[in-house]
Computed example of a mutant assay.
Amino acid sequence: MRTKAFDYKKAKEKMRITNPKQLNLKEINTVLVLAPFEVGNMMLCIPALEALKQAVSPLGNITVVTSKKTAGIVEGCKSVSRVIPFNAATAVNAIAEVYKKKYDLMINFTSYKRLSFVFGDLSAAKARVAYEAKEASAIFERVYNLTLHTIDEPQHRLFYYLNLVRFIGANTYDFNPKIWIKEDANKFALHYFEKKGIDCNKPMIGINPTLKDEKKRWSFNKFAQMVSTLRESEGAQVLVFSHKNEKSMLDEFMHITKEKCIHVDVSDYLKLAAISRYLWCFVCNEADYMHIFAPFTNVIAIWGDSDPDNNKPIGPNHEVLQSIDGSADSVPVSTVLDHVRNCF
């Protein structure tokens, strides 16, 4: 009787993956990523996506599921082949898109319980990677076969994401988030400046004074003092950036400054990034704009009582200003002005 030859390929396909060493990333062609839904966190996740792209097959495709508001940022990430925006209106279509395709690898960077189960299960990937759930769950353990234990020590969010891909063998030492600004966004920025009467040859300072958490916010009056000084002594043009849900605070600030600032009424993040390339510097509280603009201009972040090492902007030319008492409003106007002038 002839014995059937051992089919190594089939055996490998049936083998349950329980250890990251069983993965050969160069054999991975399709990856599904459940990415952060918050703008700042999405920016800090980009180096992990870049590391993953470099590690998988040269023909490998990375599909990212993220919120509709952050989808534009992900579209500017060259390591991503496809973006699936997810919100209440697109949920059914997003789930259907994931269901109709089979993936070799699924990575979950989030802690969203329901979405973790749904997309992890629908991916049909042999290797599904996530951080260990804080509360043990049989369903979670069934869906995710490769889980990384979270360390108790504080760490920057960028390394929180990067360590998850390092766990399966992908790595990078380039920690700067990179997004590609398309030519139409660059043209938009120049057209926008022309429409608003902004001279690109004169000093242009960006600010983000609006923040709902008052403990972390530099006061409107201090921002106004800085604006007045920069306009009078440096001839600077000051551009104000804010979110749609901060309109009442924006109106209050514009009233205090007597409308001497230019409000940037743009919500598309890639267009905002294109505008930020022309800023001499950007002064803000601890908010998501600092991560969006960090690859393109000097960021001066005025910090509250939290540890900046957990969330500070990434890059060599940024400054974090924090007072001894941990109150953002205790940072003197003169200190901020000195750092702004260093960018001139």
Results as ranks from 00 to 15, higher is better:
V74D: 03
A287G: 01
P332Q: 01
T63S: 09
V266A: 09
V98D: 12
V65A: 01
G120C: 04
D184H: 15
F344C: 10
G197K: 03
I198W: 07
F193H: 05
K202L: 13
V266W: 10
K113C: 08
R114V: 07
D325Q: 00
C343K: 09
F296N: 09
L230M: 13
K260P: 08
V56K: 12
F159K: 10
V33C: 02
R231S: 12
V74I: 14
T70F: 10
L122K: 14
A91Y: 12
C45R: 02
K101R: 11
A51N: 08
Y131M: 07
W303Y: 12
L250I: 02
Y269C: 12
V143N: 04
K10I: 11
A224I: 02
Q155L: 07
K187P: 04
R2T: 14
L34Y: 03
N310L: 15
A189L: 02
R114L: 06
K247W: 13
V336I: 15
K102T: 15
V118G: 11
L230C: 12
M1R: 08
A94E: 02
L122Y: 10
K68P: 02
T297S: 10
A51L: 01
N145D: 00
Q322Y: 11
N29A: 06
H243M: 15
K212Q: 05
H156D: 07
M249Q: 13
L146T: 01
P295R: 03
F117Q: 05
F193I: 00
Y99N: 14
P332A: 04
C284P: 00
K271A: 03
T150E: 14
A274E: 11
D325H: 02
P308S: 01
F220A: 04
E50I: 10
E214W: 15
R157M: 13
M43T: 08
T66D: 06
N163G: 10
N19K: 07
V333S: 02
L146G: 01
I198R: 07
A287P: 04
I181M: 00
E141Y: 13
P332C: 04
